[in-house]
């Protein structure tokens, strides 16, 4: 199907410019922009994890060197901030999961919280297990 354009005569349309600060218009937009910007924190966490793995593979000296570097106050601050943003992204992803992967049982869609909940449970259990393992050694 085609549409008859009436462009020859059509009136001047007003196109509102999008403000540079559009994302301050609502907290939801601000949160969205925060997520976009803080994806850098996710990347940083990946880098740190890779560095950790490399030092582990290289041996005890490299690992000690790595942990020492990680104890620098600015590094600690950076990682704490990165960790907070990582939490934000984790929650976003877990909440997204039931929407992107609707689960159906017996023809009915399983309520969203039931799909999201196992993610959270697994997350808490895994975190607790790691915490137990790490804290027990030290």
């Amino acid at each position: 199907m085609s549409v008859q354009p009436s462009t020859e005569f059509h009136p001047r349309w007003y196109r509102a410019p999008v403000s540079t600060y559009w994302w301050m218009g609502s907290w939801r937009y601000s949160l969205f922009i925060l997520r976009e910007l803080t994806s850098v924190a996710v990347a940083w966490s990946v880098v740190v994890t890779l560095l950790l793995l490399r030092s582990l593979l290289k041996g005890p000296d490299a690992y000690a060197h790595f942990t020492h570097r990680m104890q620098a106050p600015w590094m600690l601050a950076l990682n704490i901030i990165a960790f907070c943003f990582l939490l934000l992204h984790t929650i976003t992803w877990f909440n997204l999961a039931p929407r992107a992967m609707p689960v159906r049982v017996g023809g009915k869609r399983v309520p969203e919280f039931l799909v999201a909940a196992p993610n959270y449970v697994l997350w808490v259990v895994a975190s607790a297990a790691i915490a137990w393992f790490v804290l027990r050694k030290s």
Partner: peptide
């Protein structure tokens, strides 16, 4: 789509376009 999710919130018919796009 960068999953802002606002489309779903404002939809008067509960269509959930954001969910549709993520799927």
């Amino acid at each position: 789509c960068t999953f802002v999710g606002e489309c779903t919130r404002v939809c008067p018919k509960h269509v959930d376009p954001a969910g549709a796009i993520q799927q």
